[in-house]
Design a binder for these strands. Structure first.
Lengths: 214, 214
DNA sequence: TGGCGGTTAAAACAAACGTTTAAATTGTTG
DNA sequence: CAACAATTTAAACGTTTGTTTTAACCGCCA
């Protein structure tokens, strides 16, 4: 066993490279060489490239969803009715703190999440849904009960709007930030951006629902 | 010359396949075989795979941006001050009508736009920015003047939030629609979804800006 | 020390990729 | 009809891909 476990070195390298280039664009040879391990190590420890991809997601989604579940349970017992702001802030706090505490970049996970959606990779979508679908539905349900005056279909579309706004803007955070810094000379931290995103998301979720026949 | 131009048959096939699977996941052999043309035709007519990708985007972005520019100019002369709703409705109308009139699927272009952002493909991003950056900035500028009370940095972040919500939700339209149809038995057309998206986007753009020191 | 499971190593595998070549074919023009 | 350019075709090119193989190496317990 080298200074660091071979499995973790592979996961570390794969996580960074996948986020930078995507799955198909990242070869096992690039991963193993930057990880400093033998090429065959991936197939030995993970079985295949697909399973490596899943393992990368499992490593950050499992602690994330368990933290989110715990936070949600805490909120539910603490207050009688769940407030929209509290829910969103829980989501962001868990995402930021839970991951940053491990010394890993939250933006990277947003990029990975974005890739999971946009790159076809049917096996990944199935893996995530089957593994973390319950947590997702739990959070969506809490959000829905905090918005009783919004009909379910409209609510779920808005939830996807919010998801899109979050994943898209945060996964391209560095690129967008660079543009804004050049054009306005204003730096934006991730925290500031979340502080901008939260009220925008709230406004979108709570917007008045247009009457049907209009 | 066969019944249809070889160049257009390649573009048609590539457009569909790229939207379905992504760029790297779609091989030239798959494209040429579904197009019913010889493998070498791509390199002969387009030069390389990269240039084929750019040609696919050029074919739908050029008419789209020129229509949008015209619509924007029409709005500017018609009314003195541009209204936010009008701008967004112009955007959607142009996107829907301009493309559907050619018998092409608007959702497909949203998927392609999403891919252009998320798949690394640096050459594509450069191509789009250099070619259509002016139109984009023109539209963003019109949008900004319709929101005078929102500071520039916040405005641009919200613009990206809106972009993300749009691209993300519409590029996954079929998948989301299938889920909602199963869970609630409610079908959603693209028009209905845009009718939901527009007020949500307006709410997000016009949300009160939190005071700095808060 | 001897052997044994777990791990690493180098090499090779077949398959798929984008691209190029050179010949065959087609279309057009004088 | 002849001749030339444009296009299509089939075949091969060299690389790169994920995966497999087989031997070497390691730490550990009997």
């Amino acid at each position: 066993m080298s200074q660091l476990d071979t499995v973790q070195r592979i996961l570390d390298a794969a996580e960074v490279l996948f986020a930078e280039r995507g799955f198909t664009e990242t070869s096992l040879r690039t991963i193993t060489s930057t990880a400093g391990v033998n090429l065959a190590a991936v197939n030995y420890h993970f079985g295949s490239k697909k399973e490596l991809i899943q393992a990368v997601f499992e490593r950050f989604l499992t602690p994330f969803t368990t933290s989110l579940d715990a936070e949600l349970a805490r909120l539910a017992t603490e207050e009688g009715s769940l407030q929209l702001d509290d829910l969103l802030q829980s989501l962001y706090r868990v995402a930021l703190a839970g991951l940053a505490s491990q010394g890993r970049d939250p933006k990277r996970f947003m990029r990975l999440l974005g890739l999971a959606y946009t790159q076809s990779q049917g096996h990944l979508r199935r893996f995530i849904v089957s593994r973390y679908g319950d947590s997702y539905r739990r959070f969506a349900g809490s959000l829905a009960t905090a918005l009783p005056h919004v009909d379910p279909v409209t609510f779920y579309w808005r939830l996807y709007f919010m998801l899109g706004a979050t994943v898209f803007s945060l996964s391209s955070f560095d690129a967008i930030e660079a543009i804004l810094r050049e054009d306005f000379g204003a730096e934006s931290s991730l925290e500031e951006t979340l502080a901008r995103l939260a009220p925008a998301a709230v406004a979108m979720l709570t917007a008045p629902v247009p009457t049907e026949g209009e």
